[in-house]
């Protein structure tokens, strides 16, 4: 399924794996002091430069899985690795983009985007120049000195993306980043994200509820079962790139993927009737 032979990074394990999720399980203690199994024995390998989406019913542990890769949550069992090294905490090699944007309200657009580079020790002038370029790239030129509250939802999400891209993470971790946006803005941001990805070839782990979105963007779609989350199936999306939305929507192969995955998710929902 690997479409893109990415740069010849030193191979670790088979075919230069960027992220390895190795028999990961996650149990939460709920307030009633019960153990709640959120993720059960997940194993998944994501190759360098791949765009992988995760689909599954609400509450199946998609966010949790993403947080484990981000290093925000440590798994109760198993191990996650990035470039072969065990993940022990967050790091600038893995940049999150959240559905809630999570922009710093006390900083302007420019201040938000500059935060990462400054934290990496980039000189102020240099960081500012880079950030201005990024802001222009995500289509927000002229808004550098606006505060997040003065922006629309779509604009905020662009800033959030720029803020994460600014510290050059090798992996983007996106948790329903376009979930709160209207259909039109969503489509535009999908196109922008694809353009950026095709240019930089970052590894992307993308959580979504939209089958269309997953198929349109991804190399691989991981479908999860209802809680406790397991991997139900992994679908390789073998559609040519660069992808154009208008062409793709008419492509019978695209339609077949969408229908097939939707059917899988329906089955998953029925599974859930017996917890």
């Amino acid at each position: 399924m690997k479409v893109l032979p990415s740069d010849p990074a030193p191979a670790r394990g088979p075919a230069s794996a960027m992220i390895e999720i190795d028999h990961v399980s996650q149990t939460f203690r709920t307030s009633g002091r019960q153990a709640h199994l959120a993720l059960s024995d997940i194993s998944l390998t994501i190759e360098d430069g791949a765009f992988v989406s995760i689909l599954g019913p609400s509450g199946c542990g998609k966010s949790t899985l993403l947080y484990i890769v981000g290093g925000f949550v440590s798994p109760t069992e198993g191990e996650a690795r990035v470039k072969g090294r065990a993940i022990t905490g967050p790091g600038p090699d893995r940049g999150p983009v959240f559905q809630e944007f999570a922009l710093f309200p006390w900083k302007t657009v420019l201040g938000n985007v500059m935060y990462g580079p400054r934290q990496q020790g980039v000189k102020s002038a240099e960081a500012e120049a880079q950030s201005r370029r990024l802001i222009e790239m995500v289509g927000l030129k002229g808004f550098e000195n606006f505060y997040p509250k003065e922006l629309s939802g779509g604009m905020k999400q662009r800033v959030a993306l720029a803020r994460t891209l600014a510290y050059h993470p090798a992996v983007l971790l996106m948790d329903e980043p376009f979930g709160a946006l209207d259909a039109h803005t969503r489509t535009r941001l999908q196109n922008d994200l694809l353009n950026i990805w095709e240019r930089d070839r970052k590894t992307v782990l993308f959580v979504t509820h939209s089958v269309d979105e997953a198929v349109f963007l991804s190399d691989k779609v991981v479908v999860m079962t209802r809680a406790p989350g397991r991997i139900k199936q992994i679908v390789d999306i073998e559609l040519p790139r660069p992808r154009r939305r208008a062409e793709l929507l008419l492509d019978p192969r695209y339609q077949k993927y969408v229908v097939e995955i939707e059917r899988m998710i329906d089955d998953t929902s029925e599974d859930g009737l017996q917890p």
Binding site: F72, G89, R94, A102, Q120, P169
Partner: peptide, 23 residues
């Protein structure tokens, strides 16, 4: 404080002990 603000800053490379003052 919104957990995800803290996570965003940590991912950008902020050391744990600076989180208190930076976020």
């Amino acid at each position: 404080v919104e957990q995800k603000l803290i996570w965003s800053a940590m991912a950008a490379g902020t050391p744990r002990r600076q989180i208190l003052f930076k976020v």
